[in-house]
Simulated assay, not measured.
Amino acid sequence: MIQPPLEIDLNADLGEGYGAYSFGEDDSLLEIVSSANIACGFHAGDPHIMRRTVERCVALGVAVGAHPGLPDRMGFGRREMAVTPEEAADWITYQVGALQAFVHSEGGRLQHVKPHGALYHMAAGDAELASAIVRAVTTVDKRLILFGPPGSRLHREAERQGAPFAAEGFADRAYMPDGRLASRGTPNAMIEASEQAAAQALSIVKEGRVRTVSGEFCELRVRTICVHGDSSKAAGRAKQLASALRSAGIMIRAPQVGDKPCS
């Protein structure tokens, strides 16, 4: 019996400039990734950058996703805040709705939602917050796929509410033995070497496991892998990663509602 080829989505967080300020290699990354998570104006981004990034995604056939964060530009959305589930739900609805309008104006369709930074990690461990975020996303559009950590509260709440979910792994972040990402403040939390990032992605996709900071392996089964775009070498790292995946016979494709790996 012929086995279907392995598939994985490559996603990147894009559109994270503001006004006259920009960083990263968005244009180059959009030639490589299959999904884009576009900042929606709270932690980064503005209406003009949102529009331009959406236009580029639609032209290239890259799946468009919303990347809503906490209202914390100074901290780039990476600092935890004391928020109620209701506040978080309103912030999600506001940001996803704003990006959705730009996508519709370009004749496209919003494909997914990936919370940003601290909000992503807070929702991974807080059931009430996760539940509110899932409800907010499904209220906007029940077809939207949530991206998040496998086995997290966000994952379990999506399953409980019947929302499509794509478990996410990271090629360029180190992992703790319990499967959580190593804090950015810990040594070697970011994987800078392209070869190492490619090897980690191949281990995740082909073997369903990742080597942790302790040297041991933990199980990690995902449908999408993030490559961070906020560095000067991001595009080169992503290009080498995509090449390694294809050389291993792995197809790069954005997730769709109904895909088996999307719970």
Rank of each mutant, 00 (worst) to 15 (best):
M190E: 08
G169P: 09
A244R: 12
K206R: 15
A167V: 05
E219S: 07
N188H: 07
L181Q: 03
A189T: 09
E195P: 00
R184L: 09
I191L: 04
G236E: 15
A171H: 05
A166G: 07
A242G: 01
E207H: 14
Q256H: 11
F170P: 06
E219H: 06
D230C: 04
M176C: 14
Q240D: 13
G208L: 13
A189I: 08
T212C: 15
R156D: 15
Q256T: 07
L245Q: 09
C226V: 11
S203D: 06
L181F: 02
D172E: 15
A248T: 09
S247Q: 15
S247D: 15
S183M: 03
G208A: 13
G162R: 13
A189M: 02
R180Y: 12
A166W: 07
I250K: 03
G249K: 09
R184P: 03
A198M: 01
G169M: 07
A234H: 11
C226G: 05
G215M: 04
V205N: 10
P255I: 10
V210F: 03
S231R: 14
P177H: 11
N188S: 04
P255A: 14
V210A: 10
E192Q: 04
I204H: 04
S203L: 03
R246S: 12
R184H: 09
A174V: 09
G236Y: 07
F170W: 12
I204T: 02
R211Y: 01
K239H: 07
R211P: 00
A158E: 02
A248W: 02
E207C: 01
I191K: 00
P255L: 01
R211W: 05
G249W: 11
R180E: 14
S243N: 11
D172H: 13
S214M: 02
P177S: 08
